Simulated scan of single mutants.
Amino acid sequence: MSKKFTKDHEWISLEGDIARIGITDYAQEQLGDVVFVELPEAGREVAQGNDAAVVESVKAASEVYAPVSGEIIEPNVKLEEEPALVNQDPAEGGWFFTMKVSNPDELNDLMDEAAYADYLKELG
């Protein structure tokens, strides 16, 4: 499946009922140099739109929200030692966590790549 996006600039890619979540290139550019991440613990249940992780940069701290509801399976522990991966490769190596999706219908609330690109244009 291709990626879906939230208005809060998270991305989600799905393989079966397992999703990988990260922040978009736009989000990491707005944050600047990422210096710290706080990742969710495996086994934690999160609801769509609720905070799941925290990313801190030289500019600000920001929440990373769950694009869909589910159970955290695996945090990307590489980010604890190398938070700069979020800046270097937000779409691949800089992912935050994987989760088991509990309500696939929530994916319908998200934007596809074209809609997200249009949304970014609206932001100016």
Results as ranks from 00 to 15, higher is better:
S2A: 11
S2V: 03
S2N: 12
K4S: 05
F5A: 09
F5R: 11
T6Y: 06
T6I: 12
K7H: 15
D8K: 12
H9M: 07
E10C: 11
W11F: 05
S13Y: 11
S13G: 11
L14H: 00
E15K: 09
A19W: 13
R20V: 03
R20G: 00
I21V: 15
I21Y: 14
I23S: 09
I23Q: 07
I23W: 10
I23N: 10
T24A: 05
T24K: 11
T24W: 10
D25E: 12
D25P: 01
Y26H: 14
A27P: 04
A27E: 08
Q30F: 12
Q30P: 10
Q30H: 13
G32E: 15
G32D: 14
D33R: 06
D33N: 15
D33T: 07
D33Q: 04
V34S: 13
V34T: 14
V34A: 13
V34K: 14
F36N: 13
V37A: 05
L39M: 15
P40E: 11
P40I: 03
P40R: 11
E41S: 15
E41D: 15
E41I: 06
E41G: 12
E41H: 14
A42S: 15
A42T: 15
G43F: 04
R44W: 07
R44M: 13
A47F: 07
Q48V: 12
N50G: 10
N50P: 03
D51I: 04
D51L: 07
A52V: 10
A52W: 10
A53R: 02
V55S: 01
E56H: 07
V58K: 13
K59A: 06
A61G: 12
S62G: 00
A66R: 06
V68Y: 13
G70I: 03
G70L: 03
E71N: 07
I72E: 04
P75S: 13
N76G: 01
V77N: 04
V77T: 12
K78C: 00
K78W: 04
K78T: 11
E81A: 08
E81R: 03
E82C: 00
P83V: 04
P83E: 06
A84V: 02
L85T: 12
N87H: 08
Q88I: 01
Q88R: 02
Q88G: 04
A91S: 14
E92A: 09
E92Y: 01
G93Q: 07
F96S: 02
F96I: 01
T98H: 04
M99W: 04
M99K: 02
M99D: 09
M99C: 08
S102M: 00
N103V: 09
N103S: 06
P104L: 07
D105S: 06
D105L: 04
L107V: 10
L107N: 10
D109Y: 04
D109P: 02
M111E: 06
E113L: 00
A115R: 13
A115W: 03
Y116M: 05
A117T: 15
D118R: 11
D118M: 03
L120Q: 12
L120V: 15
K121M: 05
E122V: 11
